[in-house]
């Protein structure tokens, strides 16, 4: 499939105007929409969905923050305002299934929206990619990644929060890489330091930044690639690697980017 420089992503509004509705809604999230690094992940996910022939759409300008940072910071009011507004939009389009590249959006829509009237089948992009690979709808070979040393950093809101540990690993393993786990992984994984609204404030007084602690541990596996599955982890780990001046030899990549790049999408 040839790729244009910019890809055309349908919005729910456009489809609705044509009387169509997609199989799945791609919830991009604030980081995925605005953060310049995370935008690349968003693009990779969109390319994968397109390549696999999935009918999908985004909300575009109708999407708004899920309310996750507000809720974790204790601002339940703001969270519920955001949630109720978003649910109205989602229900208005009759959305049934949602995929997202952000574990925070994934967790909040999957677990906390139902109590406010928004029940959807929500999956993280690593789960969808695994499904597509397993079903043969998407084919990748290791290619440039074969034998590369990769370690995976578990996002708290995907792993411990929702018990998803295997999907991202299964996806990475498809690339014939040399996977090596950090000392603390899966249920014992160490947070990157961004959750619970920490992303939006300076850390409290302490002896070290959490992302430095985590990056040290990642570097102990001598990786060429640190794989992540969350835009916030991406920021924290990228900063950590820069802190150790390793950005030339160690790349931080989202699972979607690994797959998109292996499939030359």
């Amino acid at each position: 499939m040839s790729t244009d420089t910019s890809i055309k992503i349908p919005t729910m509004a456009e489809l609705a105007a044509r009387g169509e509705s997609p199989e799945i809604l791609f919830w991009v999230g604030c980081a995925g929409s605005f953060d310049s690094r995370a935008q690349k992940i968003t693009l990779a996910i969109a390319k994968i969905l397109t390549k696999a022939g999935i009918s999908f759409a985004v909300l575009g300008t109708e999407e708004s923050c899920t309310g996750d940072p507000a809720k974790r910071a204790g601002n339940e009011f703001l969270f519920q305002m955001q949630a109720l507004t978003n649910i109205e939009v989602l229900n208005g389009y009759g959305v049934k299934k949602i995929v997202t590249g952000c574990p925070h959006c994934f967790n909040i829509i999957k677990n906390e929206y139902p109590g406010l009237g928004g029940t959807y089948d929500v999956i993280h992009h690593s789960q969808l990619i695994q499904e597509l690979l397993d079903a043969g709808k998407l084919k990748v070979e290791g290619g440039a990644f074969t034998g590369k040393k990769v370690t995976f950093h578990d996002p708290c809101y995907l792993g411990r929060a929702n018990g998803v540990y295997e999907a991202p690993r299964k996806v990475i393993e498809k690339l014939d890489v040399a996977m090596s786990e950090m000392k603390r992984s899966r249920a014992n994984g160490l947070c990157c330091g961004a959750g619970g609204a920490q992303m939006f404030k300076e850390p409290e007084k302490g002896s070290k930044d959490i992302n430095i602690e985590r990056t040290e541990e990642a570097l102990q596996t001598q990786p060429e690639i640190v794989a992540v599955g969350c835009p916030f982890c991406m920021t924290m780990m990228t900063d950590g690697i820069k802190n150790f001046e390793k950005e030339e030899s160690v790349k931080v990549m989202d699972i979607a980017e690994l797959i998109a790049s292996a499939g030359e999408l």
């Binding site: 910019s6 992503i9 935008q39 690349k40």
Partner: peptide, 8 residues
Amino acid sequence: RLKWTEQE
């Protein structure tokens, strides 16, 4: 919100 589609 759709600026990312113009990336690359």
